[in-house]
Computed example of a mutant assay.
Amino acid sequence: MKKIAILAACALLSAQAFAQVTKTKNLVVVTLDGMRWQEVYRGADSAMISSKYTTDQDEVRKKYWAPTAIERRALLFPFLWSVISKQGQLYGNRDMGNKDELSNPYHFSYPGYNEIFTGFPDARMNTNDAITNPNKNVLEYINRQKGFEGRVVAFSSWERFPQILNTGRSGLPVYSGYADLKNADASPRLKYLNELQHNVPPYLGDSTRLDFITYEFSKEYIKQYKPRVLYMAFDETDDMAHAGNYKFYLDRAKQEDGYIKDLWDMIQADPFYQNNTTLLITTDHGRGDEPIDKWRDHGTEVKGSENTWFAVIGPDTPPTGVIATPTTTYHKQLAQTMAQLLGFDFKANAGHPVGDAIKTVMK
């Protein structure tokens, strides 16, 4: 008994010693499924525009083409390049020698999201099937911390997140695919979205809903319930790439950048979130590059699909813009980075060390 008491006291002292004073009190995480680093940092690709994968090529050039990469990327991601590049940080610009990569060897969605939220690659997470993830994730860890209980929520277009985030164990509210929000006190707008999502054309299939519905749910939920942590997962960039439609891939990327801008503007106008919220944006995997047909694909055999990126803005993040140091960050580091931004030390399953937090993200 004495040994147990001593161990408990040591654990408490260790936690107290770790506790950080951060200005970040709330966290918003957004993922753009399968969004390549090439378009994020270079803008629209001239070879892709001129290829069989682009319909209405003249229209696409008019909307997204400019002589320099700096101009092109600003056309495609105006919020990312007008706000985050000036007030936050961007990682993974391989043209400047900075790399952001996956640690898992599979380079597709479920393994990628597992790595982001559990802090390590798991060889068992090698499928997109509806298997239940045995690994503790950082969102459920935060949800169990004082002041965050019941204040963490996820909305996703892809239907797989209840398994990825293991809602049966974690207890997290995860509204994925066409899942309705069933809160009895939900606002009329949220109740209307429950109805609307079942009536819009199912362009992405019977299980994956449109990104604008996921965005609207997230926005209205923030307005009413003021979550401390919100995760919003978009899907259409990956869908359009797999379909081989480069025009729609670009259109969806710009649309999602606009959704993020609107959400950030709303947050910054809300006294509950203003100047105390960090926003982190990333992707679950990259895509191929050469030969050109590999743009549609990703996976173990597709070279370059391990190459990713992320962006962050918030009160604890120095406004250093594009990181140009010749260093490599890994997606397994993002879970601990999220936790430490909120002043916590995330511990995963026994025997599985979590990737170290990315210290340059924090002052």
Rank of each mutant, 00 (worst) to 15 (best):
M1H: 12
A11N: 09
S14N: 14
A15K: 10
A17R: 13
F18K: 06
Q20A: 14
V21I: 15
T24Q: 08
T31G: 06
D33K: 04
R36G: 09
R36Y: 05
V40S: 04
Y41R: 03
R42K: 14
S46I: 09
M48C: 04
M48G: 07
S51R: 06
Y53H: 06
Q57T: 09
Q57A: 14
V60E: 05
R61Q: 12
Y64W: 11
A66I: 01
P67V: 01
T68R: 08
A69P: 03
R72T: 06
L75H: 10
F77Y: 14
F79A: 00
S85V: 12
Q87E: 13
G88N: 02
L90H: 00
G92K: 07
M96Y: 09
M96V: 09
M96N: 13
N98W: 08
L102K: 01
S103K: 13
Y106G: 05
P111L: 08
I116Y: 10
I116C: 10
A123S: 15
R124A: 14
D129S: 14
V138Q: 06
L139V: 03
E140C: 02
E140Y: 04
I142A: 02
N143E: 00
N143V: 00
G147W: 00
R151T: 01
V152C: 07
A154Q: 09
S157T: 08
I164A: 02
T167V: 15
S170H: 05
V174W: 01
Y175T: 02
Y175P: 03
S176E: 04
N183A: 15
A184V: 15
A186Y: 05
S187T: 14
R189I: 13
K191P: 05
Y192S: 13
Y192A: 15
Y192R: 12
H198E: 09
H198S: 09
V200S: 03
V200K: 08
P202N: 07
L204Q: 14
L204G: 06
D206Q: 08
D206L: 09
D211I: 09
I213F: 04
I213H: 04
Y215F: 15
E216I: 07
E216R: 12
F217W: 00
Q224H: 02
Y225F: 13
Y225A: 04
R228C: 06
D235M: 10
E236R: 11
D239E: 13
H242N: 11
H242V: 11
H242L: 12
Y246Q: 09
Y246S: 08
F248C: 02
Y249F: 14
L250R: 02
D251P: 01
Y259H: 14
I260S: 03
W264L: 00
I267S: 06
A269W: 00
P271G: 01
Q274Y: 03
N275Q: 13
T283Y: 03
D284Q: 05
H285E: 06
T300C: 06
E301Y: 08
E301Q: 12
E301N: 12
K303S: 09
G314S: 04
D316Y: 06
T317F: 00
P319Q: 02
A324E: 14
Y330S: 06
Y330M: 10
K332S: 12
K332C: 11
Q336N: 14
M338F: 15
M338R: 07
A339L: 11
L341P: 00
K347W: 01
K347N: 05
K347T: 10
A348K: 03
V354W: 05
V354E: 05
G355L: 09
I358R: 01
K359P: 01
T360M: 13
